[in-house]
Write a protein that binds this DNA or RNA. Structure first.
Length: 496
RNA sequence: GGCCCCAUCGUCUAGCGGCUAGGACACAGGAUUCUCAUUCCUGUAACCGGAGUUCGAUUCUCCGUGGGGUCACCA
């Protein structure tokens, strides 16, 4: 452990997720939020959502609400956030400028911060020269001999307190280290008066009592700069928990918005359940140390161990996400499933007078058995897969012919017989088992395929469909007999 | 280019000196089944390379290779 590190094990855990409001959140950002949340909840601690809006150029209106909605959808509930200030005040950085200024002035008083005497063009010239000479650019090599008084119009820079090799501890990566090249006189307060990320996040994390910082591995190389700021301010280090990257499918680089990374809320639109998303995200870059793969929210909270976070980058396994969604869909109650299926059906089907709540209830399990997401329901519906439930089918009579039969005419007496059996019996058409008991003796006598194939096609109008008994429970007795009668009529019509 | 991080089946991963290298998704085959789907069973498939340490390396060390990140008045 680094010399300046404090033992945070006795303090209540406080974590935060600190996005900048520059648009939507993709799967990578959400996972960072999830891990910070799970860790806090696992230790009965506090989870803060802090908005880092110190770059007014990049800010996208509406982002804060969008971020909040994304987290709310997943069931990640911050204890403090943009709408719920803490004892430390606002959780929006643009509303905390006086606090950063106070810390900045403290550094100036210590002689550890100074206004940048150079114009942007001059700094750029230094940089260009360094690049041309193929050596790293360090502004600290151009540090003025004496510091001007800071009037707030120039960027305020840190005077690195001690140029040295830093070694620090990371919960995931263990001991990390970086040379002096990683240290520089970074900007603390920009010329526009806003603090930089480098400075603001350190001040805020301290003010808010943050004990563990979860963030992406792209920040590893900046850690020495951060540590030098902690040192300059005389602040203890928190625990660092570095997240592995989520990579593009081709592993060429980190997943980013430019590479078509989806808004997490797009998954909601496609019919993914938040339970499935959370479960899947948790297992991308983390494992419980057991072979359990299916988790509820509470199980994840109970199982989460930050030391099991992965070091290597991961690619999103979309197929597994689909599989998980099907699983979690199966766990939902009947009312939810009913609405889920109903909402996924195209308007063309939903507006039919036959699209009753009773039929939908009977159809729902049949649909859910065959799909992973809402979009698959819509696609299948457009292909006509569920038409049998609502519409008396139209089809070519040739489809009624069982593969072993020489002619479709063979099916005629069998369908008639089935019609007779169903008409004569006083069977409950909502009971698939009863229907099966009633018809199977005849089917087994003649041959299952010989009877069931034409029966099923007569009812569904399709070569592939649920079994005939299930279809009968969905469409009811009247419609069943009507379709059988139709089929018989068509065969006879074709024959004459 | 400097600095830093990473490396087990196609993908997500287990492994923390000795295992027939395990699980999941996907894929293939089979069973159930009139068809589709579900369910169940089985199978194909991985330790980046080279040295070193050791009786013994997927595991520890070093050197490569490959990939990624970072060098902003962005976060």
């Amino acid at each position: 452990m680094a010399p300046n590190s404090t033992d945070t094990s006795l303090r209540p855990v406080v974590t935060r997720f600190a996005p900048s409001p520059t648009g939507f959140m993709h799967i990578g950002g959400v996972r960072t939020a999830l891990f910070a949340y799970l860790y806090a909840k696992r230790h009965r601690g506090t989870f803060i959502l802090r908005i880092e809006d110190t770059d007014k150029e990049r800010e996208v209106p509406g982002s804060i609400a969008h971020i909040q909605e994304s987290l709310a959808w997943l069931g990640i509930t911050p204890d403090f956030g943009p709408d719920t200030p803490g004892p430390w005040g606002s959780n929006i950085q643009s509303e905390r400028l006086s606090i950063y200024k106070r810390y900045a002035e403290e550094l100036i008083a210590k002689g550890l911060a100074y206004p940048d005497p150079y114009t942007a063009a001059e700094v750029e010239a230094f940089r260009a020269q360094a690049t041309a000479e193929k050596r790293p650019f360090l502004i600290r090599n151009h540090r003025p001999a004496t510091f001007e008084v800071w009037d707030g119009t120039k960027p305020l820079r840190l005077k690195v307190p001690e140029v040295k090799r830093y070694t620090w501890h990371d919960v995931v990566r263990g001991e990390l280290t970086a040379g002096e090249e990683a240290l520089d006189d970074v900007v603390l307060i920009k010329a526009d008066g806003y603090p930089t990320y480098n400075f603001a996040h350190i001040v805020d994390d301290h003010e808010m009592g943050v004990t563990h910082i979860m963030r992406a591995d792209e920040f590893i190389s900046s850690l020495p700069k951060f540590l030098s700021i902690y040192d300059a301010l005389g602040l203890p280090y928190p625990e660092f928990v570095t997240m592995p990257p989520i990579l593009r499918d081709d592993r060429s680089k980190k997943l980013g918005k430019r590479d078509g990374a989806k808004d997490i809320l797009d998954y909601r639109t496609e019919g993914y359940l938040p339970e499935a998303m959370m479960n899947f995200l948790a297992l991308t870059g983390w494992n419980p140390g057991t072979e359990q793969e299916l988790f509820t929210h509470d199980e994840l909270v109970a199982a989460f161990d930050a030391t099991k976070i992965q070091r290597a980058g991961a690619v999103v396994n979309e197929d597994k996400l689909l599989w998980m969604n099907k699983y979690h869909l199966g766990k939902k109650d009947e009312a939810f499933k009913h609405e889920y299926v109903k909402n996924a059906l195209p308007e063309a089907l939903r507006s039919l007078p036959t699209c009753t709540e009773e039929i939908l209830t009977a159809l729902t399990p049949v649909v859910l058995e065959r799909i992973h997401t809402k979009v698959e329901i819509s696609d299948a519906a457009r292909e006509g897969e569920y038409d049998f439930a609502f519409i008396t089918p139209e089809y070519d009579t040739a489809l009624l012919q069982w593969k072993k039969d020489p002619s479709v005419l063979e099916a005629l007496p069998r369908l008639k017989r089935v019609f007779e059996i169903l008409s004569a019996a006083n069977v409950d058409f909502s009971n698939a088992e009863a229907l099966k008991e009633l018809l199977m003796p005849y089917a087994e006598e003649v041959g299952k395929g010989e009877v069931l194939w034409p029966l099923r096609v007569a009812l569904s109008g399709r070569a592939q469909s649920p079994d005939p008994f299930t279809i009968m429970t969905i469409i009811g007795g009247g419609e069943t007999l009507k379709r059988l009668s139709n089929a018989c009529g068509k065969i006879q019509g074709d024959a004459s």
